[in-house]
Structure formats: structure tokens, C-alpha cells
């Protein structure tokens, strides 16, 4: 086995991207906002993608960047946006001792595994992949060859996994309509013009602080507008801007509207 010498260029790349990857990981764990976490993770993943390319795995590097970072992480972001962006964790740890224990165990685990690996691979010979790729066979060809011979069964079985995933997503996300309940555009618009209110329904109100479909619009007096309740979902309680109270604020615009009484938030529709 002829050892491959690791060049300076690779070392430079490692010492630049390694800390970046680490920072990304730490940033993901430490940032309170979930979207920031996702962006930090993307940072780490991109760094790892470069590492793959450097380590003679160009195909994997590309897949990492295109599929992992480009598709999977975007899916994460998509769901985060659906859930609502305002879901930052509070800094207070509610489980007693959880953080301390987690950090201690983390140090223990990293110590055991990291030190173990470091010791075991200190004189790891680097055979390099020149023998199996490069020259006539490119990286992709070599991978394909393995994929369809040695790993054929795994490859085939993976299809079961993908079918499961697709079916699972359909089951949990797709609301089927009963046959015959679907109304055409014509019926819909006719029905609307038969009501008292042919114009569009109100969007989320100006005082609302959430942009989820479950958050109803608020009327000027702070009550939720019933027109804006989404169908099929019980309306969510909405945080409101703090309302002025007390004599000192009597001169505010709210006072002019004469709605100083704290309005009931539920609008009489408390579930």
C-alpha cells in the first residue's frame, strides 16, 4: 500500500473550513431562532461538501451540496416557515439538570470516541483511491459499479424506504375530499354573490402578531373578525399589541376611538 501524502493545499482547506463547520454546528445548537439554526446547519453542510470533494469523492460532494443542502434543508426551512417563524426557544431550561448533564455527557462521549479514534488512527496509512478510480474509471463510474453489484440489494430495498416516505407524507398531509363535495369555480362564485358580502374576506388584522393561517384577523376594537376564521381549523389565540391603560395614556389615539375597555380576545368564540 503506497501512502498518499496529504498536500498543503488540503491542509489549508481543512484549517479554514474545519473551524467553519464547527462554528456552523455550534451556531445551530446555540441560536434561539430555528431559521438561524437551519442556516447555520447549511453552512456546516456546505463545508462538509467541500471536504468530500477534497477527499476524492466529487460525486458525493455534489450530491451533498445539491441534494442535502439544496433539497433537504430547504424542506426543513419550508416546514419551519409553515410552523411559523416566531418559534424561538426560550433560553430557560425547564428540565432540571438537563443542560449540565447533556454537556457533561457530551464531553464524556467526545472524549471517549474522539480520543479513541485519534489514538487508533494515529498512524493510519492512507491508501488513496487512485487504484479504484481515476484513469479510465471516473468516480461516478466506480460508484455505479459498486452500487449495482455489491450493493444491489440495498439499492433495491431503498425503494421501499422511498415509497414508505411518500405514502407517509400523503397519509399525514393530504386531506381527501369526499367524492362529490368538490364545487366548481362557477358554483363558488355564484354562491358568493348570493351572500351579503361579495368582496374578499379579511386577511390577518393589523394588530395580529402572527402570520399563521390559524390566526384570525382582528377588528379595530381587538375582537377577532369571524369572517377571517380559516375553515377546518379552530382559530388560534392572537397576541395583541399592548393596549393603553390608565389615565396617563388617555390622550392616545385609542382613547379617541372610545375602546378603552379591554376587549374580550375570544370574541365570544372561546372553544
Amino acid at each position: 500500500m503506497n501512502d498518499v501524502v496529504i498536500g498543503t493545499g488540503e491542509a489549508v482547506v481543512f484549517w479554514i473550513l474545519g473551524p467553519l463547520a464547527l462554528a456552523g454546528a455550534l451556531g445551530m445548537v446555540l441560536s434561539r431562532n430555528a431559521v438561524h439554526s437551519a442556516l447555520w446547519l447549511i453552512n456546516t453542510m456546505l463545508a462538509l461538501g467541500v471536504f468530500y470533494v477534497v477527499q476524492e469523492a466529487p460525486f458525493l460532494g455534489a450530491v451533498q451540496i445539491i441534494v442535502y443542502t439544496g433539497a433537504i434543508m430547504i424542506l426543513f426551512l419550508f416546514v419551519l416557515m409553515l410552523v411559523g417563524r416566531d418559534t424561538s426557544d426560550s433560553v430557560v431550561e425547564t428540565l432540571r439538570g438537563q443542560r449540565v448533564a447533556a454537556i457533561l455527557l457530551g464531553i464524556g462521549f467526545a472524549g471517549l470516541v474522539g480520543a479513541g479514534i485519534a489514538r487508533a488512527t494515529r498512524d493510519l496509512p492512507v491508501a488513496g483511491l487512485d487504484a479504484v478510480q481515476g484513469g479510465d474509471t471516473s468516480n461516478i463510474e466506480a460508484i455505479a459499479q459498486l452500487l449495482f453489484t455489491r450493493y444491489l440489494l440495498a439499492f433495491e430495498v431503498t425503494s421501499a424506504l422511498l415509497i414508505t416516505a411518500a405514502v407517509g407524507a400523503m397519509v399525514l398531509a393530504h386531506i381527501e375530499r369526499e367524492p362529490g363535495t368538490r364545487r366548481t369555480q362557477k358554483e363558488l362564485s355564484r354562491a358568493r354573490f348570493l351572500t351579503d358580502r361579495p368582496q374578499t374576506l379579511p386577511g390577518p388584522g393589523v394588530h395580529a402578531r402572527a402570520n399563521s393561517v390559524a390566526a384570525p384577523a382582528l377588528l379595530p376594537d381587538g375582537r377577532p373578525a369571524e369572517d377571517s376564521f380559516a375553515t377546518g381549523i379552530d382559530p388560534q389565540e392572537v397576541d395583541q399589541m399592548p393596549r393603553p391603560t390608565g389615565r396617563a395614556q388617555l390622550g392616545s389615539p385609542d382613547a379617541a376611538l372610545g375602546t378603552l375597555d379591554p376587549a374580550p380576545l375570544d370574541g365570544g368564540r372561546q372553544p
Binding site: 428540565l95 438537563q98 448533564a101 447533556a102 455527557l105 457530551g106 464524556g108 462521549f109 471517549l112 470516541v113 479513541g116
Partner: peptide, 16 residues
């Protein structure tokens, strides 16, 4: 999270 803590603890113990 507590369960996960137990699992990580178990993993450390097993490895150790």
C-alpha cells in the same frame, strides 16, 4: 429530551 439523555448516557457507559 430526558429519554435521549438516558440514551446518550447509556451509549457513553456502553462504549466506556
Amino acid at each position: 429530551r430526558s429519554y435521549a439523555l438516558g440514551m446518550l448516557g447509556g451509549a457513553v457507559v456502553v462504549a466506556g
